[in-house]
Nucleic acid binder design. Structure first.
Ligand SMILES: [Mn+2]
Ligand SMILES: [Mn+2]
Ligand SMILES: [Zn+2]
Ligand SMILES: [Zn+2]
Lengths: 137, 137
DNA sequence: CTATAAAATTGTAATGATTACAAACATTTA
DNA sequence: TAAATGTTTGTAATCATTACAATTTTATAG
């Protein structure tokens, strides 16, 4: 499916700016924040405003095209909502990795009378690389 | 175990301020934020500074006495780290509920070379109460 | 093709949580 | 007691996010 079709399918009119922000999220693997998206696209869209980046990401999040990844930082980072997955953040180097292989979490028994819309899982610890650096204490 | 013993056991000197913040977290069931803790304790500790609340919560978090609960709000809320559990936040009324009955998540296979320190699970949706208000669409 | 309405984008100014930092105060140690 | 260390405080920055009105662009109607 083309990118503009993805936006249309979610009820979003595919303006140039919106498509470029979608493309950037699609290509980025590292969960960019607003500042990074703005800095990356501003050369290509010289009139781009940071407010538009905020507006667009809010729209994407509301229409479930993207989701905000809330890490231990105090800034939101963004991810396309395509495949649900968890995130691992290394406390040493700050790197964020996608974690796709998580066991299904069945919430029916735990929350029988609730309507669950979203589950976000954030794992923190030390990544494989940083383990090597300090193997023994 | 007494509260001061809990702090000592985590390598924290139990000053009066620290014990009162610990007590407040222990009694509070609703994951208070810094402002609320400050407002609640300021009458009892007239010289209390909000910076001290921040300092103390950072100390508690570092020493694993408490943990920061990051919700969709843009402010941190705090919880004693006693029993690991997930959180459910209602998108209608904003209420936050503890969710203790979650299946164990075994990360060994998913992250074999990582050292996992913490897993935080945030579930969002509509709570039982708010379901009743708008049952049909 | 215009005129009008609606939607999208922009720039600037607030907001508000958090942090930085140095001074003041309290406690421990020698 | 004196010095060192640890704790608390107040004020001033920082910085991500939001509010909001103006401007520009796009869609719709005549
Ligand atoms: Mn991801
Ligand atoms: Mn809790
Ligand atoms: Zn690492
Ligand atoms: Zn509710």
């Amino acid at each position: 499916m083309q990118n503009d079709a993805v936006l249309k399918a979610h009820g979003i009119k595919p303006s140039l700016t919106r498509m470029m922000i979608f493309d950037y999220l699609n290509a980025a693997k590292h969960h960019p924040n607003v500042e990074e998206i703005y800095q990356a696209l501003q050369p290509k869209i010289p009139t781009l405003s940071k407010t538009t980046v905020y507006n667009t990401l809010h729209l994407f999040t509301e229409k479930r095209v993207a989701r905000a990844v809330m890490l231990k930082d105090q800034e939101n980072r963004y991810d396309l909502a395509s495949h649900p997955h968890a995130h691992f953040q290394c406390t040493k180097c700050g790197k964020v990795e996608d974690v796709f292989r998580l066991p299904d979490i069945h919430l029916d028994q735990a929350l029988p009378k609730h309507s669950v819309h979203d589950v976000s899982v954030l794992i923190s610890g030390v990544c494989a690389e940083c383990q090597k650096d300090e193997p023994l204490i």
